[in-house]
Nucleic acid binder design. Structure first.
Lengths: 226, 226
DNA sequence: CAGAAGTTTAGAACGTGTTCAAGCATTTGC
DNA sequence: GCAAATGCTTGAACACGTTCTAAACTTCTG
């Protein structure tokens, strides 16, 4: 087991210091390579050369290319500092401000973070559009329009945008299931919880009752499955 | 440009017939390999051998491994048929029933779909947990608890579960941005729209006003950015 | 200081997705 | 019917991430 650098509380033996230094070199080289050449230049051979180490060393110190990318991602973040500037009175205001900060953080250096995330998930080409095929989309749109016509959705809410949100949520839940982050037992309740919450947010007053019931039902299920 | 097989309305020349047959063979081989060996066995060389074709043929006919996986995914789906059984009176009922069907569809054959999706996104090891680091998580939890204490969130809504939903949504939006599916201009409004909807669904009555305003504001922005 | 323990190194190798020049079959124009 | 044109298939090859071996090097132990 590797002793992790941690907070540098203990004096760090000579050997560990050397490793830490090499780790630093590799992370720095990865960052530079991404900056200069994008994802294409970030090959393990190039990375090793740039860091002035052998090809095997990054594997000894990190284990895999993905681990290195994650290390870059963690090393680079100064979220905490920016979050600490949040001093709004209204708690909701703070939530949305925090959301903006998180997004701005990535948007502020798009090519860098795009590359970084693309190295994490390999997915690139228009996977989304192909998975959620048009027929299925039309079907869902129909369902939402029907709900809107029935007066279940507040008239000033755009059903198309609402549908987008539902699909965003479902995709994340499915992804977690695929990756093993959420169990099969929790999958359906989690999705239903999200759907119910979003729909409740969009509901007209007279439909709030049944939707709230669904929210609580899914929530109870989630707590039970725990 | 390749002439797509389509609905077989035209008689399909000899060449096209051969291609269609090879396509069928490859998809079938992919499905079989996933069933028998899981993701590990699904190499392009193995796939080509199993389909009785040369290695380059799948690339000529589909373009990439991912495209083949997508083809398997699309080929296999009988969503339409199952969706067509939806005959509930209540439109909301239908939405949740459709959601259940969609999920059951995947859960019904977990190893198959897990493999399929894993081949789409390469991500596997605990990426999620490493990206969203604990400090950040604690920060967000604090924000939500604060909102709950202030009475903004209905007392019967679990802030932890609520937070999960917000993060699910944000992750999907970020992913779309990374992949280029959503522009930088739409990123923030889309996220805010989702957050506002979810929070509105969870809000106590007296906080609904400002949240509804945020929903409409984000919605207007989204329409404007188009 | 000498031996033991642990790491890096160079190099080759494996299996992967993907591409390319060259050959072959089908299709097209006459 | 036949020859030219088209475009698909093929086997070889490339670059990649990753692993392995043996040797050289550095650090720790006594």
């Amino acid at each position: 087991m590797n002793r992790v650098a941690g907070m540098a509380s203990e004096p760090l033996s000579r050997r560990e210091a050397g490793k830490a230094e090499r780790r630093r070199l590799i992370i720095q080289a990865a960052r530079d390579l991404i900056r200069e050449t994008g994802n294409a230049g970030l090959s393990m051979r190039g990375l090793a050369a740039r860091a002035g180490v052998s090809l095997a060393t990054p594997y000894n110190l990190f284990g895999s290319k993905r681990a290195i990318v994650v290390a870059v991602l963690q090393d680079v973040r100064q979220f905490q500092e920016r979050f600490s500037t949040l001093q709004g009175a209204d708690p909701l205001e703070k939530i949305f401000a925090a959301l903006d900060i998180a997004i701005e953080f990535y948007i502020g250096d798009p090519s860098f973070y795009r590359t970084l995330w693309s190295a994490l998930f390999d997915a690139y080409d228009g996977v989304r559009g192909e998975i959620l095929n048009p027929k299925r989309d039309a079907f869902w749109r129909g369902l939402l329009l029907e709900a809107a016509r029935a007066g279940a959705i507040a008239p000033d809410v755009d059903p198309a945008l609402l549908l987008t949100q539902l699909e965003l949520l479902l995709r994340s839940v499915m992804f977690d299931w695929v990756v093993g982050e959420v169990s099969a037992a929790r999958l359906a309740p989690t999705a239903r919880y999200g759907y119910a919450l979003i729909l409740l947010g969009a509901a007209s007053p007279e439909w709030r009752g049944p939707l709230k019931a669904r929210v609580l039902e899914a929530q109870a299920l989630l707590r039970q499955v725990g």
